[in-house]
Design a protein around this nucleic acid. Structure first.
Length: 270
DNA sequence: CGAAAAACCTGGCAGC
DNA sequence: TGCTGCCAGGTTTTTC
């Protein structure tokens, strides 16, 4: 479900818990992408949340005992904030992080998400091989061009590979390529520096705009405060197969790349 | 080794 | 009303 803008939106909604005392954690179902460790509850109990940050599509809680919770929402995960005196349970609620008056509840029907505990974030297996943050200066045309030139795969798969750049998933990959006028099946190593410039700029712009409006709600993404994202209304190609291209009025195409739906305009993108 | 395919899950929806 | 098959915003594991 969530790509970088949705994770960032979710993070911003729970930022108010920074500095708060995490009184207790309840794990209702340990079965996620990986099993939640048995020591999770005792490790986080009575710790202050010193910082709340995002790295790639992971949300990281830094606790006062120097442990860090690494949370990934997978395809269908979401957080919601509930009042402690409103005690209802929804199917697929996995974990509750209970604070003074409210709690953060992690729900994940498909269980592709995960929760880990670690002491050293940078050495954790899920974090250590991640590429640059797309909104940072490390994600720039020069570096990206160099990385592309060593790759044999198509640019859409390359863009979604979190080793090359993080945070871009299936929606924003199609959208970025449209904005940059690059065909999704073009080989990464065939992009020239100018194309890389356009793609880097497009990626940044799309992600920034999506964050600004709270991400993309196709059907079931809601931020932790319950609000949907409005970027759906700015999508140029994703989910618009058969409809006219917003630029040239030609028909938007759909194909499958690496088992993922891919949308593009044959006329605008080469 | 890198790239592609399969695997991990549940739920919703179209079509019969 | 079922039932079947397909699709879904991600990433790791397996296979080639």
């Amino acid at each position: 479900m969530p790509e970088l803008p949705e994770v960032e939106t979710t993070l911003r909604a729970i930022k108010k818990f920074k500095g708060s005392l995490l009184k207790e954690a309840k794990v209702h179902n340990r079965n996620l992408r990986w099993k939640v460790v048995d020591s999770f509850e005792t490790s986080v109990k009575d710790q202050v949340v010193e910082s709340l940050e995002r790295r790639a599509k992971y949300i990281i809680f830094k606790l006062s005992n120097d442990k860090k919770i690494i949370l990934h929402l997978g395809m269908s995960g979401s957080l919601r904030i509930a009042k402690n005196n409103e005690n209802f349970f929804i199917k697929h609620d996995h974990v509750e992080l209970i604070f003074d008056e409210e709690r953060i509840i992690y729900n994940d029907p498909r269980r592709f998400g995960s929760m880990h505990l670690t002491s050293d974030i940078d050495k954790h297996k899920l974090i250590k091989n991640l590429g640059p943050e797309p909104l940072s200066k490390n994600f720039n045309a020069k570096n990206f061009f160099s990385a592309c030139s060593h790759s044999k795969t198509n640019i859409k798969s390359f863009l979604m590979n979190q080793k090359n750049v993080v945070g871009i998933g299936n929606i924003y990959a199609s959208e970025s390529l449209f904005l940059a006028k690059i065909h999704p099946l073009k080989n990464a190593n065939e992009l020239d520096l100018d194309a890389c410039k356009r793609l880097v700029a497009a990626g940044k712009k799309i992600l920034e705009q999506a964050i600004e409006v709270g991400g993309t709600t196709l059907k079931d993404f809601y931020s932790a405060d319950g609000s949907p994202g409005y970027f759906k209304f700015k999508l140029n190609v994703y989910g618009r197969e058969g409809e006219p291209c917003n630029k040239c009025k030609d028909t938007v195409c759909k194909t499958t790349i690496n088992q993922r739906a891919t949308f593009f305009c044959e006329t605008c993108q080469s």
